[in-house]
Design a protein around this nucleic acid. Structure first.
Lengths: 339, 339
DNA sequence: CTGAAAGCGCTTACAG
DNA sequence: CTGAAAGCGCTTACAG
């Protein structure tokens, strides 16, 4: 367990002929050392292959420079792409990233955040939707508030009832875009395959859709299932079994849209001839499915990168909000309704 | 930065009426405490909301219980699925996971591993292919050897020239399965869209294919491009522009296969009527593309979980090898060649 | 600008 | 089985 050979800061200090304190200041870029001396110390450190012990650093100073990223499930392309953006941006800043699964459960989220805090990570990024019910986020909010008083930095991706820096996806507007596209094509009976209505992501996208549908006299049927490919299959079957005649279906994320496509195929319904299908996110694969999916692109990797940018800056008086745009990507899965 | 309120182990010890040493033993499950006393201490700790400071622990004891996972790119479904398996299994064991990008570059890999070591993570899992050239892995091997003498645990996923525990995907056999499937269908002119030939994953799969093709008198054309969807597109165009008439194409991973499908579509060639296509991995999406892809399934998530299982066990005298199976998933993208 | 010293919160020999 | 004490490698007031 011991590493008698590891060179420590004292060794560097001795070799450089300075005190431990000075060596420390030189290495951490702290103020109060002449540039030449600092340069000298760093050269010695380099030559000796000095590697700082982050645990000692963490113990002595408090929080350590690393990021805790809480995702729903890293195997989900939506989160994998966010994580990719986080990792790239973090590595530029020399910060390490620890990833944990929250399984889209408020309690689990709290558990993970507590674990991250106990590890003294310097910042925490929570990716994944907030909940429409503020009460569900209250415990998390308390934990985070306490963490922030200790100097911890926090950023969330998505709309939360949390008083922290946030990167906001354009969910409502994306809903409007998708709805406008569909109504513009002439659809008047539309089915919406939603995820859990308690998620802000779902709620915001749905509201965006509805704002257009309602003012266009579109007949909307909404079914809510799990926010996954399986949920898309179940939702489609539920909707169709119910006998609701629709000419278009909107899945509230691409994972569900993939399920919709699959269910439709199994039922022998053609897309877009019999029914149009649209999704949200533009995860990498949806341009390769058949037919290629029309979807509202959310810049996942960029959101991850922006979240890192937020936590890298000092906390402001007011929580910062970075709004991201979206882009409607029209592909082959949507067309005018059948006559 | 300070947290004057955090309850420390001394506080727990005081409240429990025992010494710091005893409290420590009780909390870490160390031997040498009566069960009752240990139980008592833990109850007090629980009540006080005691959370151990891992940095103090790491400083005092050496390595800390957390896992460093090195992947090529977390946005790539292959690695995202491996990571998912790692995260699930690790959370069961109460270990945190830190993920870093290595960008499929030996030097970057070494840099990442060094960073992980300097953070005193207790174990390191390297996912991603090894290199056919042993020299490329030598520096990494040295770093890892040193790390292991300090008590660090190491496991790799995939074949490496590294003397450590390994989870081995069934690449050669998977190649045999794909080749057998294709020759069985009657294909005699086959194109292989390979990734970099210096990667063991590529080399092993190719060898597997060749062992069958060679003994069946199949005419094989191999092109090598980047191990991505783009590489699949480029490879397909290169192969076809060269005028090599093939009735089937094998991409050495599903990402490339997606590119092949796309390139073929753009050229107006039908799959499988004009040309059959097969891949490797069975990443989640390939069952949804059109036509659904025939592929050799590699159990990514399971490999990740197995790697964690390996590092959780103490090091053995001889490196352990866990061989994973594969499964040929025949879907719509392969059929008999056109007459 | 530089140094001596205290302290961060644990674990682990070393003694009983 | 239990305790007193040293030590892990840093950072940061506190002095000069």
């Amino acid at each position: 367990m011991k590493q008698p050979d590891a060179t420590r800061l004292v060794d560097v200090a001795a070799a450089a002929g300075v005190s431990l304190a000075t060596a420390s200041r030189a290495m951490t870029g702290g103020t109060g050392v002449s540039d030449e001396l600092a340069e000298h110390v760093r050269a010695i450190a380099e030559r000796l292959g000095y590697v700082p012990n982050l645990h000692a650093r963490g113990l002595a100073g408090g929080l350590v420079s690393s990021i805790g990223l809480v995702v729903h499930e890293i195997g989900d392309p939506y989160f994998a792409e966010i994580a990719s953006g986080v990792l790239h941006r973090a590595s530029l800043a020399g910060q390490s990233v620890q990833i944990t699964h929250a399984d889209r459960d408020p309690r689990s989220e709290l558990t993970q955040v507590n674990a991250l805090m106990m590890q003294r990570v310097g910042s925490i990024i929570i990716a994944g939707s907030g909940y429409t019910d503020p009460a569900l986020e209250a415990p998390l909010g308390d934990a985070l508030a306490q963490y922030r008083t200790r100097g911890g930095r926090v950023a969330v991706i998505g709309r939360h009832h949390l008083d922290v820096d946030a990167v906001l996806p354009d969910n409502h507007a994306a809903g409007v875009s998708v709805a406008t596209h569909l109504t513009g094509l002439g659809h008047r009976r539309i089915g919406v395959i939603a995820g859990p209505l308690g998620l802000n992501t779902v709620s915001d996208r749905l509201d965006g859709l509805r704002s257009v549908f309602d003012s266009t006299g579109v007949h909307v049927t909404v079914v809510s299932h799990s926010f996954t490919r399986e949920g898309g299959i179940d939702g489609t079957n539920a909707l169709l079994d119910r006998g609701s005649p629709v000419t278009a279906m909107v899945a509230l994320n691409d994972a569900m849209a993939l399920g919709v496509l699959r269910a439709l195929r199994q039922r022998g319904m053609r897309v877009p001839e019999d029914v149009s299908v649209a999704g949200f996110d533009d995860i990498a694969v949806v341009s390769d499915v058949a037919p290629a999916l029309t979807t509202a692109r959310i810049p996942m990797a960029e959101m991850g990168a922006q979240a890192v940018a937020l936590i890298l800056r000092a906390e402001a008086d007011e929580p910062r909000r970075i709004s991201m745009g979206h882009e409607l990507i029209v592909r082959a899965s949507t067309a005018a309704p059948p006559d």
